[in-house]
Design a protein around this nucleic acid. Structure first.
Lengths: 124, 124
DNA sequence: TTAACTGTATTAACACGAATAGTACACTAT
DNA sequence: ATAGTGTACTATTCGTGTTAATACAGTTAA
């Protein structure tokens, strides 16, 4: 369900946060779905339970999950988080765009690239 | 010429590499332009010369500069580096696109966002 | 030649944060 | 009761970015 990428330089707990964010945002983990227990996931990934706990704590702080003592951690209702997620993404897109313009890539080429991807998608 | 962003979590040397990469790619530092000396830049940025040297070493390894002992570091001819830079950027764009699709943002909205930016640009 | 610049190399130490280890406690369900 | 959950806390290890202090080598201009 969750994979660790050791080529990724970011901390493990941050990677775990990201993966669950994606799973929850995509609806793969619908509201109220139980997440793996802290200990189980730690064993499965061969990392320390504290690292999982830190990730779960972060996810709760961000509103992606809620935890019930003695029962487990569960996916939260994230409908109200979507807008802020979108805003963050468009901000990232702006950063990439700036970088592109800086090295001489035009708006048109960026758009063309996305359109090309979209076309390829349709063929599948 | 170069600024350090202490909010940026990445290492200083990596930030410096990025800044010079941008300056060179944008042509602000044309081929054979001399870069600040290791010691001067260290003083200017109030950081250790070793950190600058590490950044310069990295830039040389990447082909952005060349160094002449006793003289200084100079911007290299990067015409042949452009294609690989562009490839890297499009790869980043693909990653963002994936992320966007994952949370329900369509290709159309991405393209619209870029076009909107382009329009705003024209107004200036 | 000498002085003042350049880059380069090396070693040691420091600082910070990620990750681990170990333990303890509280709650829930069977 | 037992075994599963989450939570809290402290101590330690470990990696690595950064600093510090020198030393050496090449270039340039007085």
């Amino acid at each position: 369900m969750i994979l660790i990428d050791y080529k990724d330089r970011r901390p493990l707990y941050e990677q775990i946060v990201d993966r669950f964010q994606a799973l929850i945002l995509k609806g793969i983990l619908p509201t109220d779905t139980q997440l793996p227990s802290v200990r189980n996931l730690a064993i499965e990934l061969s990392i320390n339970p504290n690292t999982i706990q830190r990730a779960y704590g972060e996810l709760e702080r961000l509103g992606y999950i809620y935890s019930v003592k003695g029962k487990g951690n569960f996916a939260a209702d994230i409908r109200n988080l979507i807008p802020q997620q979108e805003a963050a993404l468009f901000k990232e897109l702006d950063a990439i765009t700036d970088k592109a313009l800086g090295i001489g890539i035009t708006y048109e080429r960026l758009i063309f690239h996305i359109k090309t991807r979209q076309e390829e998608e349709k063929l599948k």
